[in-house]
Amino acid sequence: MSTALRIALAASAALLTLGVAQAQEKTLRIGTEGAYPPFNNLTADGQLVGFDIDIAKALCDEMKVKCTFVAQDWDGIIPALQAGKFDAIVASMSITPERAEKVDFTNKYYNTPPAIAAPKDSDIKGVTKEDLAGKTIGVQASTTHFNYSTKAYTDSTIKPYPTAQEYQLDLANGRVDAVNDDITVLEGWLATPDGACCKLIGAITPDIEIHGPGAGIAVRKGDTELVNQFNKAIDAIRANGKYKEINDKYFKYDVYGGES
């Protein structure tokens, strides 16, 4: 037997035992973005924090499984789930029909409206198509907000950014006239010193076809058992006050939205 073959056999044997060990411990790997405060964010020392993270931890406690977190760029988060890099996405992912073709969603775990922000001296009056005609709008790419902006603001130039941080930078230095994102994300940013340049123009009435019923947890297609477990856990933390505790840590109002 050649050395290469021997090494390959040993490696696969090691992988097998590793797989068995993981199955026994029942570790759930959760994928998140880590660049979307206050929902999920990487701190300077590399810790993941935020509403999504706390909710995910509470759900894992409820489901009695051990959870680990993986930070993954937004653009590749669904392919990474499909490739098995993690088992569920808890990253403020809006439930949309296109995504639901590729992944299975739990029920929503929060639902907040989108909004528009602009510099303090901006002449933008509202959030309609006419108000934003001729303006440049910055949005995070591959999001429902991006889809909404390109559909609704056809008289404006839409610029796609990889993360929220980059459009915030460009709004502050004036490369874009306005930005479109979730209201809680914008409010969170405007409250920081970096967001001092800018103000909230107003909330957008969500378009159910584009924005969907809210943010849910995504799992691989066919992983129905995990969906059921998550749904039960969401209901449980809503009922036992754990959700409210986390909610109040980050927001002044209930982000869950109406019962759907």
């Binding site: 653009d75 669904i78 296109e98 995504r99 073709e101 590729k102 790419a141 591959s142 991006f146 889809n147 796609p160």
Partner: peptide, 15 residues
């Protein structure tokens, strides 16, 4: 929006 930008956009719409 160069070739790669368009590609990413298309991917984000269609997966």
């Amino acid at each position: 929006y160069d070739l790669m930008g368009i590609t990413k956009l298309t991917y984000s719409r269609t997966f």
